[in-house]
Design a protein around this nucleic acid. Structure first.
Lengths: 150, 150
DNA sequence: CACAGATAGTATACACAGAAACTATCTCTG
DNA sequence: CAGAGATAGTTTCTGTGTATACTATCTGTG
């Protein structure tokens, strides 16, 4: 079988599927993850961790639960993500005086260094160019997604 | 603490995060999943299964691997999804004459009935209105996502 | 100030998705 | 036409995220 014939075989009828919002979101996300992991190949940096470090850099001492709600991460999962970052020496946990049920988070020096080291790559993955859209299309897309996300 | 004060507590500084494409995609998807499961509450219908059934309806006898590549589902996972649908009586598997390594898929009568029963709800979840955008914004968003997805 | 209920986070158990290795079949080349 | 390599799908193992239930702490009301 030639490549061309195989291509024909693999072009099934899609009907209205390309207008199903949930499918499009998922497909776009899968492709974006591929880009992310290609850019961070060999570094074991993960998208969610990178985002959390970023948030902690902007909000030193933020409560763990507030970070979780902001990033739509479930509390049970946040516990594990934070534990990983603490094990990696990037984040520190502190139980504040006022409310000893809660936990506040801070970057360590190593965490700040880690963030600085990967900042450009992280931003680069999220650029119109790497995503394959014209700048104005990209701006429109981000504005629309922002309406849905926040 | 009043609701208003709590709201203030929970508005951390976000910096450039709302321009991080990957984060926006994920947040939008999490919110969309919530809508989906709210609409299908009590039915145990899942988004991925619904999409696969739809694809099978349009392409009777499609090869399992072709379906997997079309929907960006990994082969190992597709095996399990198909098995679930077969157990539910919605899909049938057939090993074709020409290539006995492969497997072709078809909807059963029950599968077609299932699809028909949930079709409107499925489309409804994926409408400008339920997503909370104006129709023209929604059309733009879909067109842009389609560029990324296919 | 005691205690009922709310809240913050954690632990346990499970579901969903992927990677790698395996089996069966097919194809192509010598 | 035999055997090496490619291909289709499955199995096994692992990781990521969720639901549920639990512990610790706090708050508000009597």
């Amino acid at each position: 079988m030639t490549a061309h014939q195989r291509h024909l075989d693999e072009a099934p009828e899609l009907g209205e599927l390309p207008s199903i919002f949930g499918l499009l979101l998922r497909l776009a996300q899968v492709r974006h993850y591929d880009r992310f992991f290609a850019a961070f190949e060999g570094t074991d940096v993960r998208p969610g961790e990178m985002t959390l470090l970023w948030l902690l850099d902007l909000n030193p001492g933020i409560r763990q639960g507030v970070a979780a709600r902001t990033l739509l991460i479930k509390p049970a999962h946040m516990t594990k993500v934070v534990q990983r970052l603490i094990d990696a020496g990037l984040v520190s946990r502190l139980v504040p005086q006022g409310d000893r049920r809660s936990v506040t988070l801070n970057l360590t020096d190593a965490g700040r260094a880690h963030l600085a080291r990967h900042r450009e790559t992280f931003l680069g993955v999220s650029s119109a160019d790497s995503i394959g859209l014209a700048q104005d299309e990209y701006d429109t897309l981000l504005a629309l997604l922002r309406k849905l996300a926040f």
